[in-house]
Amino acid sequence: MHWSASGMLRPSTVGEAVEMLSAARAAGLEAALLGGGTDLVPALRAGQRQVQTIIGLRRVLELRVRGAGADRLTIGAGVTYTDLVGWSLSPGLARAARVVGSAQIRNTGTVGGALGSARPASDLLTFLTAADAEVLTVSPRGPRRQPLARFLAARPEPDALVTAVRLARPGGPATYLKIGGRQAAYPAEVSCAVVVDRVRHTLACAVGGIGRQPVRMVEAEAYAQAAVDWATGTVSSAAAARFADLVTEATQALTPTLPVGPHGSARYRIHAAGVLAGRAFARCLNPAIARPALAATLLPAAPHSDFLRPDTFGPDTPHADPATPHVDGTGPQGAR
């Protein structure tokens, strides 16, 4: 292998990239994979990371593809958040991508970068955890497919390249909510994704910002499965509050592992997790009765807030709150 003294390598295929990665390791060089650079470049500048070789993936066109199979969606690691914002095949994913950072960050940051950095508060990872996504990697040992939770929990394989994530086509409404500082500048403190599958009669809920990786709310999910009237995809008015309580309880049990953030105390995060979960649940499932009371407690729709925009629903689901303008109706955001 010819080593560029500058340390910058720019492969054009996945095969080349994997080869370069293992050759660098064999030569004892600290190598970094570069997606958009939104995490790596500031870290290099600040001296938080020292590398001798950078493998830039911009020219690997096979990573920059998103596609739909009969029942699965596959998103290449080089796909940017902006590419996902206007994607009609997964409105929930589009919504999660839309509230990532700023336009500048969404245009630059990639799906592979989110998986490689594996930040605890990553918007995308919280949504993908609820969506039961799988991570596809390629290493010298060949291709591998594993559930996202296992990928995040395991120690990263230093010679593997994330090539894509895969998730089921949506079978119902999904939403993503987060709370924290100014969205464009700071990651979420706490986030919550709810993904409803009206075909398989399941509801998945993941909460981010309360552990090293997003956590699935197993008890609350089981409760929801029983509480939802699957014929109509709705719930009773009390169900959202009960769902929120179950999430709060589950989060409370995780307290010892809560990361210490500069802003949110553990108590705040536990409370926020319950509030966000209740809201997300209500937005997906339209609690029909006692709507004004619920709207007051769970849906203080703040159209100008970065975090509480009206959400994206599945194509066949009526909007939860007709009084709230549907932001996505304003046109193709960032479709380029």
Partner: peptide, 12 residues
Amino acid sequence: RLAASCTVLAAD
């Protein structure tokens, strides 16, 4: 595409 040049690697 709009980008923050401080997050883009120059060589890339």
